[in-house]
Amino acid sequence: MEILERLRERFEVLEEKVQRDDLIFVGTTGKNLIPMLVYLKEYEGFKTLVMISCVDWIEEGKFQLSYNLWAPKQKKNIIVKVFIDRKQPNFTTIYRIWPQAEVYEREIHEMFGVNFEGNPTQGEELILEDWDDIPPMRRDFDTLKYSMEKFGERAPKSRINIRREISEQYDEWRRK
């Protein structure tokens, strides 16, 4: 792939993988990310940011951020990966390159707790209103336990007597 050679000339490429003819993975360091994204956008025609996603590598103590780009003319995808420290998940926003990145970064902040410096809407509620625990998509978050504590036990399978059951609960509550 010619594009990989051109990238290798200019930036520090940690890993590379050609998945298909139209899908390439490139790993790089945090310092090189923004120059690489700008280069890909302005020189290689990867004009669209499809999405940003995040992976929690809990054993290695790292978060992986993947920036998925799309080149409309060549009809090619490139995914730029970058690893950041899990204990201090700070990174730089790219919303000045693609404005739509703002929302993706906001969601990743909400779900993984990654801190994107310079993102103007960082910390505003997107999906989780009034969240009161560690970010739920981290792998050390026990979702079943949380669900049981907050929303109660899973109701019994047979719910034929459901109306009676609820009215019993009313009475119990009134007696208190």
Binding site: I127, T143, S147, F151, G152, E153, R154, A155, I162
Partner: peptide, 26 residues
């Protein structure tokens, strides 16, 4: 809404609707 369904262990979906609203028909 009855018992959480396939989202019974979700951090965000409720498990029993009739705790919050009165339901007439399931």
């Amino acid at each position: 809404p009855i018992n959480g369904g396939m989202y019974y262990d979700s951090y965000n979906a409720i498990n029993q609707l009739d705790l919050y609203l009165p339901v007439d028909v399931w």
